[in-house]
Design a protein around this nucleic acid. Sequence first.
DNA 1: TACATGTTATATAATGTATATAACATGTAG
DNA 2: CTACATGTTATATACATTATATAACATGTA
Lengths: 134, 134
Amino acid sequence: MIIKIDFESEIPIYEQLKRQIIQGIAKGDLAKGEELPSVRQLAEDIGINLHTVNKSYNLLKDEGYLVVDRRKGTRVSDTMPEPNEKYIDNLKEEIGYISADAYCKGIRKEEFLSICEKYFDNFIANGEDESNGR
Amino acid sequence: MIIKIDFESEIPIYEQLKRQIIQGIAKGDLAKGEELPSVRQLAEDIGINLHTVNKSYNLLKDEGYLVVDRRKGTRVSDTMPEPNEKYIDNLKEEIGYISADAYCKGIRKEEFLSICEKYFDNFIANGEDESNGR
DNA sequence: TACATGTTATATAATGTATATAACATGTAG
DNA sequence: CTACATGTTATATACATTATATAACATGTA
């Protein structure tokens, strides 16, 4: 999987990396149980410090996305994190702000929902039946 | 309009204030052309520094939400900002990440879109006809 | 003239981000 | 057992961001 860091971005490097890994998992670029590069390897590949990668990995580990196996290194968790209350509250706050901004700027409800749907659909695999459990 | 700052939040104070003003405009708590408190007044009310309020006001001014009239003070702009390319790109990136995170955590497409719709609807005034221009 | 407005200029402190270097415990491969 | 790679921890440093404090300025109002 290819990681692209924007060093001019206002979003911290560790946060960009974390987001791309989550999107990689959602898209299927990173399979459940798949091994990730070591912190040193990935840091060298991207051209950043090992501690910056380690911070991303730790945040993802705390959230339940990654697991560390002493034998097999860092891997994508076999079971995805549950949506706890804190996450739901945060999601609603973010959507609340983003939709307010979009509404003020004249984005129509249909346009807004169309974008939300398009990006969500991007993660639903071909033939995946949404009506089943995960 | 009541401003609530969470001093424990990881979101900077000036950013929280900026977001609440945008949401206030979207909800109609702040009407177009309405005068805002002075930076000193609002800073005192909230219990923060005047420069922190000034930073939020300036960001909102740069974005087109607020206008400064030497005679009438700072007011909500009569015309809302246009959705430029930078904004659209940013919106898609944010939605892309948020939906990936939601998808991984088992949020169903219907749930996700339901939240998006609910919060957007929150800003559409009673009787407002969405099919018309703004 | 007195006052309030936004604005600008410094300065300082605290925190967050990113880097650098080193060391440690654990598990793997030779 | 030895050498190596892994994640982890510990310091230290540099820099940017955030928030505050104090002061001053130009402009417009009363």
